[in-house]
Structures are given as C-alpha cells and as structure tokens.
Amino acid sequence: MEDRLEALETKIMSAEDQLDELNRTVWRQQQELDLLREQVRQLAQQVKTIQPGAPNRPEDEIPPHW
C-alpha cells in the first residue's frame, strides 16, 4: 500500500510540474501573440495612410529597357 501511495504522489508531482510548464508556455505565447497583434495593427494603420494612386518617384521607376 505504501508503494502505491508513493507512486501516486510521484505522479501528482510530475503532473503539477507539467502543468506549471504548460502555464509558462501559454503565458509566453500570449505575450508573443499580443506583440504580433500590435505589430499587425501598426502595419494596418500604415497601409491606411498610404495614398493610393500617388505618383511614383522617378528613382522608383523601372527604366523602359527592363
């Protein structure tokens, strides 16, 4: 009986460690997701500010022989 109890305690400790690691992983992923969402928001804002049909700068033009 003692061995079974010890085995169960060991399994519970292992499960708690795994749960803690999963929580840390989820937290890190949430931080990264928040950062990526902010970057996408900023990029979307930049795209909105681009003037459609704005004349190209001469240095951006491709020479006619290309």
Results as ranks from 00 to 15, higher is better:
residue 1 M to C: 14
residue 2 E to L: 14
residue 2 E to N: 09
residue 2 E to A: 15
residue 4 R to G: 03
residue 5 L to E: 04
residue 6 E to T: 04
residue 6 E to A: 04
residue 7 A to V: 08
residue 9 E to R: 13
residue 10 T to Q: 04
residue 11 K to C: 08
residue 13 M to L: 12
residue 13 M to F: 15
residue 13 M to I: 13
residue 14 S to I: 03
residue 15 A to N: 08
residue 15 A to Y: 13
residue 16 E to V: 08
residue 17 D to Q: 09
residue 17 D to H: 09
residue 18 Q to H: 14
residue 18 Q to V: 08
residue 18 Q to W: 15
residue 19 L to D: 00
residue 20 D to P: 06
residue 21 E to H: 15
residue 21 E to T: 09
residue 21 E to C: 08
residue 21 E to P: 00
residue 22 L to V: 09
residue 22 L to P: 00
residue 22 L to N: 03
residue 23 N to M: 04
residue 23 N to D: 14
residue 24 R to H: 04
residue 24 R to I: 02
residue 25 T to V: 10
residue 25 T to S: 15
residue 26 V to D: 00
residue 27 W to T: 13
residue 27 W to H: 12
residue 27 W to M: 14
residue 28 R to E: 09
residue 28 R to D: 06
residue 32 E to Q: 10
residue 32 E to Y: 06
residue 32 E to A: 01
residue 32 E to D: 11
residue 34 D to K: 09
residue 38 E to S: 12
residue 38 E to M: 10
residue 38 E to T: 03
residue 39 Q to L: 05
residue 39 Q to D: 12
residue 39 Q to V: 13
residue 40 V to L: 09
residue 41 R to Y: 06
residue 41 R to P: 03
residue 42 Q to L: 07
residue 42 Q to I: 05
residue 44 A to H: 09
residue 46 Q to P: 02
residue 47 V to C: 00
residue 48 K to Y: 03
residue 52 P to S: 00
residue 52 P to M: 02
residue 52 P to T: 00
residue 52 P to H: 02
residue 52 P to I: 01
residue 53 G to F: 05
residue 54 A to P: 02
residue 54 A to Q: 06
residue 55 P to W: 02
residue 55 P to F: 02
residue 57 R to Y: 07
residue 57 R to S: 12
residue 58 P to A: 10
residue 58 P to I: 10
residue 58 P to N: 13
residue 58 P to Q: 13
residue 59 E to Q: 03
residue 60 D to E: 14
residue 61 E to R: 15
residue 63 P to S: 00
residue 63 P to C: 01
residue 63 P to E: 03
residue 64 P to G: 00
residue 65 H to V: 10
residue 65 H to I: 02
residue 65 H to W: 01
